[in-house]
Design a protein around this nucleic acid. Structure first.
Lengths: 161, 161
DNA sequence: TGTAAAACAGATTTAAATATCCTAAAATAG
DNA sequence: CTATTTTAGGATATTTAAATCTGTTTTACA
């Protein structure tokens, strides 16, 4: 048996569930000025409708979506998908501090800890942030149609294990 | 307001709470053959005693600790701290798949997804795993006494932002 | 022996994340 | 202007992780 009594069943995602849903929803938003229905989108994603609606609302408040009520209404992007980065989406959903400063829980956010993996963690956070900032919704959309994997040159340097 | 209605308050740690507690506890285990009390250790960490006891039990099952009951009893390391890596601890507490394969939730564990940040995420996972495998409990202990930060040469390559 | 101190193991409780429901407000179409 | 369709937003329910509690077993020592 590998799992201890106190919890720890599933592998943990780096982001909260609503953040992942937000990304999946935004990728499927029309690029033209058309409005899309929350209910419609929820069905495609296999998500509970009213729950997705909440997330779309949050994205409206963050300025990434705009909404229209009534018939012919729905949600649409405020900008073209190539001008919305994953970083913006994550910031909107997770807040300005997406992850803990110390992997081991040594220090609160903003504080300083001195464990030896701290500098490595800082570097990883920086790399991840950069990748998120360099990837747009358009890139995600393109990847869905053509399943190729363009390797990131920045990261290729460190790749050989 | 940045936080959406459906959840998302705190910055999320990459590991579950019990995993972080396990690391904090192991670092404070005596290196000689002495047994240490769970209650005692819990007090030092500011953790609920019986909860920490569960975690120590799990570490016993994983073979990282051994226990002795009765008076003069407690817990001790099965190996010298320089021969226990953080990776072993994380595997023991989180299971063989510490994090999701796809950051955006596109694919289940083991499956394949094609989003453009996938290769970057794979690289980051590899780097993190390597750092955890290269860092021992002894390193953590040393860092606590002498708060210096020896930069990891592997990661320094990718550092300049 | 018998008593006290400790880990052990299961059940239970609390809190947080996730998901659902329900009524109101806005916009369109007839 | 009324009925219908949609988002808005608060309240509530469900699920999962985190923490606590209760009693049992083992060990040392008097």
């Amino acid at each position: 048996m590998n799992h201890p009594q106190p919890g720890c069943p599933h592998p943990r995602s780096l982001f909260h569930a609503p953040t992942r849903y937000a990304l999946q929803a935004l990728v499927r938003m029309p690029g033209d000025g058309t409005y899309r229905l929350a209910r419609n989108l929820a069905a495609e994603l296999g998500l509970p409708g009213p729950f997705l609606a909440k997330i779309l609302q949050a994205l409206c408040h963050a300025g990434l979506l705009e909404s229209l009520r009534g018939p012919t209404g729905g949600f649409r992007l405020t900008r073209a998908p190539e001008h919305i980065t994953l970083r913006e989406v994550v910031l909107a959903m997770e807040g300005p501090e997406p992850f803990e400063d110390c992997l081991l829980g040594h220090a609160a956010v903003g504080e300083d800890c001195h464990c030896p993996i701290r500098p490595a963690w800082d570097v990883l956070q920086t790399l991840l942030t950069r990748v998120l900032a360099q990837t747009s919704l358009r890139d995600l959309q393109a990847a869905q149609s053509a399943p190729n994997r363009p390797e990131d040159p920045d990261l290729a340097v460190a790749a050989p294990v």
